[in-house]
Write a protein that binds this DNA or RNA. Structure first.
Length: 213
DNA sequence: ATCCCGAGGG
DNA sequence: CCCTCTGGAT
């Protein structure tokens, strides 16, 4: 199977068997999405969604967050991973948006990455979801699944994987593909002992082919 | 024990 | 490149 056929098969399969609307981050504007994604590192979306309503009530916009006191923000997120870092990042992010970006959440990856707590993955999520740019956010799931299936080859970093994936996936499908790969990675193509017996794309999968000889 | 849609610093 | 941050569910 050629690489092109592999992509075709995988994308077609997911298009037909949409892994479905899973628990997703809840947000109502770019500000809220950015905050939610920053909080989501190493933490389930469900848990993030439990904390964000209180945050958005107390800090309804980027300006109010930029004036937040650490000791008041910290308790609101202390039940998720890395509350110390994240509280620091959120306030720093808001301040930089106010000072350097005139209070508007930037709409390009290079600008977003300058913000505290915003790495490439977060920047790609924000630009693809809010601004509909054809960017692929590569997290641990996407990285692992793409490598296993053979959508990427010898990708040593998330950035390399991102570049290979973006090259082969039609623009309009990139965000959905991102989500499909995550859900597939979460439930089927798990890190240890992947559930190949339940996998619908195994016939296009290099890992499975290798497994079965 | 291991996993959750990572980022920053050394 | 590896290390640290570090809470809750399973």
């Amino acid at each position: 199977m050629t690489k092109q056929q592999r992509y075709q098969f995988v994308l077609d399969y997911f298009e037909k068997h949409n892994p479905g609307a899973e628990t997703e981050l809840i947000y109502h504007n770019p500000y809220q999405l950015l905050v939610a994604v920053i909080l989501s590192a190493q933490c389930t979306d469900k848990r993030v969604n439990m904390t964000t309503p209180a945050i958005f009530e107390k800090y309804p916009d980027i300006k109010s967050l930029s004036h937040a006191a650490f000791d008041e923000l910290f308790p609101l997120i202390k039940s998720i991973s890395y509350p110390n870092n994240k509280a620091k990042h959120l306030i720093g992010m808001a301040r930089m948006v106010m000072e350097d970006f005139d209070g508007e959440i930037p709409d390009t990856v290079p600008e977003l990455i300058k913000l505290p707590g915003v790495g490439r993955k977060t920047a790609n999520v924000v630009t693809s979801v809010v601004y509909h740019q054809p960017n692929m956010a590569v997290d641990t799931h996407v990285f692992r699944v793409a490598a296993r299936v053979g959508l990427t080859q010898n990708a040593k970093t998330p950035l390399q994987a991102e570049q290979q994936l973006v090259r082969h996936i039609p623009k309009e499908k990139i965000y959905r593909a991102h989500h499909w790969l995550i859900l597939h990675g979460r439930y089927i193509c798990v890190a240890r002992n992947p559930k190949c017996d339940q996998c619908g794309i195994r016939k296009a999968c290099k890992y499975y082919a290798h497994l079965t000889g």
